[in-house]
Amino acid sequence: MKRLIRRILSILLTLIVVSFAVFTMQSFSAGDSASYMISEEVGGAAADAYMKAMVPDDPFPVRYLSFLFSFLTGDWGRSVSGQDIAELITRKAGVTISLSFLSILLAVLIALPLSILSVRYSGLLRKAVSLSAVLIMAIPSFLTGFFLIIIFSAGLGLFPPAGYTSPSVSLLLWLRSLLLPSLTLALLHASLMIRIFRKALDENMSKPFTLSILAFGADRKSLVTQSALKPSLPVLYTLIASSLASAAAGSAVTESVFALPGIGSLLVSAALSRDARLSGIIVMLIALAVSVIYMLLECVLLAADPRTRREA
């Protein structure tokens, strides 16, 4: 219980710290992202009045609180090009969320069997898996994306190389347009998962309880799935959570390579258009989402392993 409370406090703390940081940094550069709306002829006094309306002369704490309030109530204002931010984000959130979940799903589907198999049958398989994981983690994820495009799209023509089809147009095309980008992220996350999860499996394999079962004549191979797997699961949950959390950052790059209209590419274009307001909102939203994910992780861990409940 204490842990849960700590987690909720953590979420609130994150909200305050991140929003404060964003707000402070934004107010130092208020001039740079003036509105797209002021036409070229409007000069001097009118522009000053407009800027004043944008950055009122209230004291700092008051401005911060009103900033926080408007964020919490969904009053997010307009982007540099005049579009409503709330509308932009709700429209694009679906793409990023589906990309994130699909990539974690694929990552687990790849990592779990491979981890178990390479503990069962060590030797060539284990080495091959290790080598692939090292290679994938050694290059930036967008390169993995390039190679997937070259092989599967330009080469074999199985998947579209870029672009997004919304599920309302066609479910099949939607999945196809998401597959290569999800696979790009999945390979990266899977490599990390395999490394850590496999280590956990190995550790549990050499724990006393497993060894004693072995001494009683149990079959080594099935032991992996029976005994070592369950205690290693919390590690897996943690990995899933941290992968989901870093999917936000990963999506910025992947969405750019595959031209997917999600929050990640929105953040990138906000950065390129020096849109402090839009990027600030996105950063705060992602920070919140990540804290919530970690809180959910905590709940799952508590439910999965009663022993942790007693560790206060």
Partner: peptide, 8 residues
């Protein structure tokens, strides 16, 4: 990305 949005 956020820092870039502020000042390049």
């Amino acid at each position: 990305l956020f820092l870039n949005a502020l000042s390049g």
